[in-house]
């Protein structure tokens, strides 16, 4: 009889179990990195990191700390699997993306290990949904080796100030050029599209600027098509930290506050566009 909904008690050994009383806390973070169908999940006792990559040039990570969950246990040092993120998101939002006030979807998530599906048990208003999502061999991930000690320039902005800019990026431009400098123009976003160029300048004393630590003038270009998906994270976030290292690698860290006031992070790393010579700048 298919009506039993509970996972068979005890007996089964899950390497990963997690429960969350509001599945939306998870789904909204995952949506912030959902620009490719597939994601790699990496769980340790600290929480889960969900990684999505594209074109060997961009990597997005959503970090869901163990504290976000009401219950979280990982039986091995680390657990890794690859999963179809679109499917996972459809399952997590099976009861809708915006639940009625006062209701939320409770989630229990279990994984038995390599070769097994990821099990989701979702409940809202007495209705239970059970999902079995097949998992795949994890991908080898890019290592951006971006460490805070090698950061050359760093700016923290209120996300509000970047939202419109990213929403209106001139997509006929191949690149987004980011200039960070201790002197004018301080922080500048530029595009070079079919119809000309556009520059967006943020003064260092702007109220949007939460922190400004620029040590040297750096101008780097990034493929605009790769950065565009980060708009999703930007939309959810309250603050964004923009950092570059000496090679021009870019880190965008988005601070996201969920409805319960908990803080989570989504991070995008992006390689500079190498096709451009200094002369062109």
């Amino acid at each position: 009889m298919p009506f039993s909904t509970q996972p068979s008690a005890s007996g089964e050994q899950y390497v990963l179990t997690a429960s969350l009383d509001n599945a939306r806390h998870l789904s909204s973070l995952l949506r912030a990195v959902h620009f490719q169908d597939h994601a790699t999940c990496f769980a340790t006792a600290n929480g889960i990191r969900v990684t999505v990559e594209d074109a060997k040039c961009i990597q997005a990570n959503a970090f869901i700390q163990a504290e976000i969950f009401q219950e979280f246990s990982v039986q091995e040092e680390s657990v890794t699997f690859r999963i179809n993120l679109s499917v996972l998101l459809d399952c997590l939002t099976i009861f809708g993306t915006s639940s009625l006030p006062g209701t939320s979807t409770a989630l229990r998530m279990c994984y038995r290990g390599y070769g097994y599906p990821l099990m989701l048990f979702l409940e809202e208003g007495g209705v239970v949904t059970v999902c079995k999502i097949n998992t795949q061999e994890p991908d080898e991930l890019l290592d951006f080796d971006f460490c805070s000690t090698k950061v050359v320039n760093k700016i923290i902005l209120q996300s509000e100030g970047l939202r419109e800019a990213f929403a209106e990026l001139d997509m006929t431009s191949e690149v987004l050029q980011i200039t960070m400098s201790p002197d004018k123009p301080y922080f500048r976003l530029s595009t070079f599209g079919n119809a000309g160029s556009a520059h967006l300048d943020y003064p260092r004393d702007s109220d949007l600027m939460e922190a400004f630590h620029c040590n040297q003038t750096q101008t780097n270009r990034y493929k605009i098509s790769l950065l565009k998906p980060s708009t999703k994270a930007l939309a959810l976030s309250c603050k964004v930290s923009i950092r570059t290292d000496a090679q021009g690698f870019l880190s965008l860290q988005y601070m996201i506050r969920n409805e319960d006031g908990q803080i989570c992070f989504v991070e995008y790393y992006c390689c500079p566009d190498e096709d451009i010579t200094e002369a062109e700048l």
Partner: peptide, 20 residues
């Protein structure tokens, strides 16, 4: 050969469009 449209926005942000 440029038509410049510059918007002065809140928080001191400036948007400069150099249109051909």
């Amino acid at each position: 050969s440029r038509l410049v449209v510059q918007l002065h926005c809140k928080y001191g942000v400036t948007k400069t469009h150099n249109l051909t």
